[in-house]
Design a protein around this nucleic acid. Structure first.
Length: 474
RNA sequence: GGCUCGUUGGUCAAGCGGUUAAGACACCGGCCUCUCACGCCGGUAACACCAGUUCGAUUCUGGUACGAGUCACCA
C-alpha cells in the first residue's frame, strides 16, 4: 500500500458531465495505479444551486463505471464549523480579513467587459471598525490577503513549472456572507485534513492554483502534488472547438447510457482522451487493465476533442463482444416493445448484433419490420444481378407456391428451397434473393438477406408481403 | 483586454536530436457475400510559421500566429 491519496470532488449539479467523469477516472487511476486511496467528497457549498437527488446521480455513476471510492463520502455542508475555524486562524495570522463591502460597491469595480476585481477596500480596517460592524451585524465575507508583489510558482506534474505574478491574484473570498466557504478555501482545508497527496483536476484550475499554494503556505502545510488534466472539448457544426457542452450533443453519462452506450465502452473511450499507454498500442482496456497500465507520464497536455464517431466505434466493438444472452437481455426488450407477436425478435436481434453501434439505434433500424413501408418498383432493379421489376415479378409468382409448401420455416430451409428454384430455372441465386428480399423487406438496404428476413417475419407475414408485392407489380 | 497553458493527418495519438514520422476512428478502394453490416486486404492524409543552437531539428531555445483556459459571495 502506497501513501498516495487522491479524491474526486464533484459538486452535485444533478448530472455527471462526461468531462467530470474523466477527471474522476484519472484521479482514481493516479491513486489505484500506485495502490493508493481514493476518496469522494461532495462539494455542496453553493446553496443556490443545490439540486435534489444530485448526490445519488454521482454515486450511481461511480458504481456503474466501477470507480470505487474508499470509505464514506465526505459532505462539505456537514463540515461548516471546520472551515470557519480555519478561516479564523488565517485572520489571526494576518493572512485573511473581514470585508464588509456591498454587492453594489463590488459591481461598480467591474470593467466594461464585466471583469471584476477587488481593490482591497477593507484590507486595513481598524480593529474598532471591524468590531463595530460585527456587533451591528453588518454582512461580511472573509477574504484572503494576497501578497502585493513577487511571484508564486509551483510545479505541476504534467504542465511543469507554472509561475504567476502575485499582482494577478485577487483577494479572493474564503467565506461567503451566508457563512458557507467557497471552493477556493474549503477544498484546500479538506485536501489537507483528508491527507490528499495528489490533487487531480481539470486544467481550468491551472492559473488559480498559486492562490491555493499561498493558503497552504499560510497554514504552514506541505503543498500537495498537482496533476492538472487537459480539457475535454467539443466541436460544433462550424468546426469550432470549445469546452464540451450540451450544444455538442449528449454530454452527460446518463444521457449516453440512455442512448444505449455501455458504461465499459464509455470508460474505455474517455480513458484514452488525454492519456496513452507507454510502450503499447493497446486500446481495449478493462478497469483492472487501466489500473495497471496507467501512469502519469502518459497524460497529455493538449486538449482533446470528444469524438462521437469513435465512441460509437468503441461501443459497437463492445456490443459485438457481448455474449448472446447478455446482448439479448438488452436488445429483446426494445424489440418486443415495438414488434408484433409473430415477429421472431430473437432472430431479428441476432441480425442486428453486428449492425448497431448503440442500443438506441435498434429503434431506427426496424421501421421495415413494424410497418409495410411505401416502396417503388425501381427497388427491384439491380445491375449486378440483372434484375428488373418484370423478371422479379416472375420470380415472385413462381416462388409463392414453393414457399407455401415449406414446412420448416427457417433460414437454412428457405435458402435451400430458393437455391434449388434458381438452379432449376438457370437463374443466378442472387437475382432470386434480390426479388424476394425487396418484396419482403420493402426497402433497398436491409439488415440481413431474403431468407433471414423471411425467418424474422414468419411464414404468414412473409407470404402476405410477397402477395402484396406481386399485386403492386401488376 | 491582462495573465496562463497549448499547437504532429478531419479526430484521438506515438515520437522524447539522426525514423520511409507508428497505430486507432472517420473517409476511399478491393475481397467475401442473399442487399447492408461483420470480417479480411489495401489506400489518401500531419510535424502552424520564423529565427537561433547543432554536423543534423517534429524533438532544445526565443519570437509570431492561432486556439483554449482564467480573471465570481460557481465549482
Amino acid at each position: 500500500m502506497s501513501n498516495v491519496v487522491t479524491r474526486f470532488a464533484p459538486s452535485p449539479t444533478g448530472f455527471m458531465h462526461i468531462g467530470n467523469l474523466r477527471t474522476a477516472l484519472y484521479s482514481y487511476l493516479v491513486s489505484k495505479s500506485q495502490g493508493g486511496k481514493f476518496i469522494l467528497r461532495i462539494e455542496d457549498t453553493d446553496q443556490v444551486r443545490l439540486v435534489e437527488g444530485a448526490t445519488d446521480v454521482i454515486l450511481d455513476t461511480l458504481k456503474m463505471t466501477g470507480i470505487e471510492y474508499d470509505g464514506e463520502p465526505y459532505v462539505q455542508s456537514e463540515r461548516l464549523s471546520i472551515y470557519k475555524e480555519y478561516a479564523e486562524k488565517l485572520i489571526a495570522g494576518g493572512n485573511a480579513y473581514y470585508c464588509f463591502c456591498t454587492q453594489q460597491r463590488l459591481d461598480s469595480l467591474r470593467d466594461e467587459n464585466g471583469i471584476g476585481g477587488y481593490d482591497g477596500h477593507c484590507r486595513n480596517l481598524s480593529k474598532d471598525e471591524i468590531e463595530k460592524n460585527l456587533a451591528e451585524g453588518v454582512p461580511y465575507v472573509i477574504r484572503q490577503k494576497m501578497p502585493d508583489e513577487g511571484k508564486t510558482s509551483y510545479t505541476d506534474v504534467v504542465y511543469g513549472e507554472v509561475e504567476i505574478d502575485n499582482s494577478e491574484l485577487r483577494d479572493q473570498i474564503l467565506i461567503k456572507a451566508d457563512g458557507f466557504p467557497t471552493y477556493n478555501f474549503c477544498h484546500v482545508v479538506d485536501d489537507y485534513l483528508m491527507g490528499v497527496t495528489h490533487v487531480v483536476r481539470g486544467n481550468e484550475y491551472l492559473t488559480s492554483t498559486p492562490k491555493y499554494c499561498l493558503l497552504y503556505d499560510a497554514f504552514g502545510w506541505e503543498r500537495p502534488t498537482y496533476v492538472h488534466l487537459p480539457l475535454l472539448m467539443g466541436k460544433d457544426e462550424n468546426g469550432n472547438v470549445s469546452k464540451l457542452s450540451k450544444r455538442h450533443g449528449a454530454v452527460s453519462f446518463q444521457d449516453l447510457v440512455n442512448d444505449g452506450y455501455l458504461p465499459e465502452a464509455i470508460v474505455n473511450y474517455i480513458a484514452l482522451l488525454g492519456w496513452c499507454p507507454k510502450d503499447s498500442n493497446q486500446e481495449f482496456f478493462t478497469m483492472d487493465e487501466l489500473k495497471s497500465a496507467f501512469s502519469i507520464d502518459g497524460l497529455s497536455k493538449s486538449p482533446a476533442v470528444f469524438d462521437y464517431e469513435k465512441l460509437k466505434w468503441f461501443n459497437a466493438e463492445y456490443i459485438k463482444k457481448m455474449p448472446d444472452d447478455k446482448y439479448e437481455e438488452k436488445a429483446l426488450p426494445i424489440l418486443d416493445e415495438f414488434c408484433e407477436n409473430y415477429i421472431n425478435t430473437k432472430k431479428l436481434a441476432s441480425l442486428l448484433h453486428t449492425r448497431i453501434s448503440y442500443f438506441g439505434e435498434i429503434r431506427k433500424s426496424i421501421d421495415f419490420v413494424t410497418s409495410r413501408l411505401e416502396m417503388d418498383s425501381s427497388f427491384y432493379t439491380n445491375k449486378k444481378n440483372k434484375t428488373t421489376p418484370e423478371n422479379c415479378k416472375e420470380v415472385l409468382v413462381d416462388c409463392l407456391p414453393i414457399l407455401e409448401a415449406v414446412e420448416n420455416w427457417d433460414n437454412d430451409t428457405l435458402f435451400a428451397v430458393l437455391k434449388e428454384y434458381s438452379a432449376s430455372k438457370e437463374k443466378k441465386a442472387g437475382a432470386v434473393m434480390w426479388a424476394v428480399r425487396i418484396a419482403v423487406g420493402r426497402q433497398i438496404i436491409t439488415p440481413g438477406g431474403a431468407t433471414e428476413l423471411m425467418e424474422v417475419f414468419g411464414k404468414a407475414e412473409s407470404i402476405a408481403r410477397i402477395k402484396q408485392a406481386v399485386e403492386e407489380l401488376e
